[in-house]
């Protein structure tokens, strides 16, 4: 009996969150855009129209019945490459070393998780403990923000070499200050609540209060922020790819695709447009989704 009611409530919960998204037109549009790419990514795990790395066709073809989006300068099918390119961003991360070990979750996803973990820990410490902790942590973060992002990326990659993990690390470090600021302000607000006093009068440890009492109540805004950050991360991956220091081959990288097509821009303009459009739609989709979600969530709070 009990299990049954619980199951129902879980379904209910799922439906509640779906209706929350549907309530906002912005979030609906965003989620459709994101879902489109997610579905493509899943399909590409099992099937792409052609082999994404084989030069099966003539070079620099425009869109035609066989190659829907045309081919690139090496005669590879652009659509297949775009589909495959979604994987590294959203679905898989290749670990270095022998045997091609692959873990689920794309580079963008892990990068954001990394920056969240780093940022939240620092932000909660700064916000809840205050005083010297706050001073020192915020100074470090301000120093990090003061660096231009691209320079930071270059420094990290120059020091550690190319690879998925390095890109994740770069994204984590550059994203952490923003997350930390948000977490800090949330912690400073929440720590004034009486239930934090209650925990303190129970003599709870600082870490318990930060992660068990404060964090769950800060999770809403943090989640939305994380969603936005996935967008930024995809952007960053695109930028790195364009500079040629992004995700290493053999998997196609959208940024790199833009870069390579750029050289042939006079013979095949569309080859530049497609990957650029892919990056743009995914990022905009994520942004819209996060924005709409935030709006609906704050509306329900009141």
């Amino acid at each position: 009996m009990k299990a049954k009611t619980k199951k129902k409530s879980r379904l209910q919960k799922f439906w509640d969150s779906v209706s929350l998204i549907l309530a906002s037109r912005v979030a609906t549009v965003g989620s459709i855009m994101v879902l489109f790419w997610l579905v493509l990514a899943f399909i590409s795990l099992f099937w792409t129209p052609y082999d994404y790395n084989a030069s099966d066709f003539l070079q620099n073809l425009g869109p035609n019945p066989q190659n829907w989006l045309g081919t690139d300068h090496l005669g590879r099918d652009i659509f297949s490459r775009l589909m495959k390119g979604t994987q590294v961003v959203l679905l898989k991360t290749r670990l270095p070393g022998e045997g091609n070990i692959i873990i689920p979750g794309g580079v963008a996803i892990w990068g954001v998780i990394g920056s969240m973990a780093l940022g939240v820990t620092m932000g909660l410490n700064a916000g809840y403990r205050g005083g010297w902790w706050d001073q020192v942590i915020m100074q470090i973060l301000d120093a990090l923000i003061a660096f231009p992002r691209i320079v930071l990326y270059l420094v990290v990659i120059a020091a550690l070499g190319q690879g998925d993990l390095v890109v994740i690390l770069a994204i984590s470090i550059t994203g952490a200050p923003g997350v930390a600021r948000l977490a800090r302000s949330l912690a400073m607000d929440i720590k004034t609540r009486d239930y934090i006093r209650a925990a303190e009068t129970r003599g709870e440890s600082v870490w318990y209060i930060m992660f068990k009492e404060i964090l769950p109540n800060a999770s809403g805004p943090l989640l939305v922020d994380g969603m936005l950050r996935v967008g930024y991360a995809i952007f960053a991956i695109g930028t790195l790819g364009f500079l040629g220091i992004g995700l290493p081959p053999p998997d196609p990288d959208w940024g790199n695709m833009v870069n390579e097509a750029r050289r042939n821009i006079f013979s095949n303009q569309l080859a530049v447009i497609w990957p650029a459009l892919a990056i743009a739609t995914l990022v905009i989709g994520l942004n819209l989704f996060a924005d709409g979600l935030r709006e609906e969530m704050t509306r329900y709070q009141k």
Partner: peptide, 12 residues
């Protein structure tokens, strides 16, 4: 132990 004033913030 302590009981707090504001019912809206006394519970997590």
């Amino acid at each position: 132990q302590m009981v707090f004033q504001n019912p809206d913030s006394t519970m997590n």
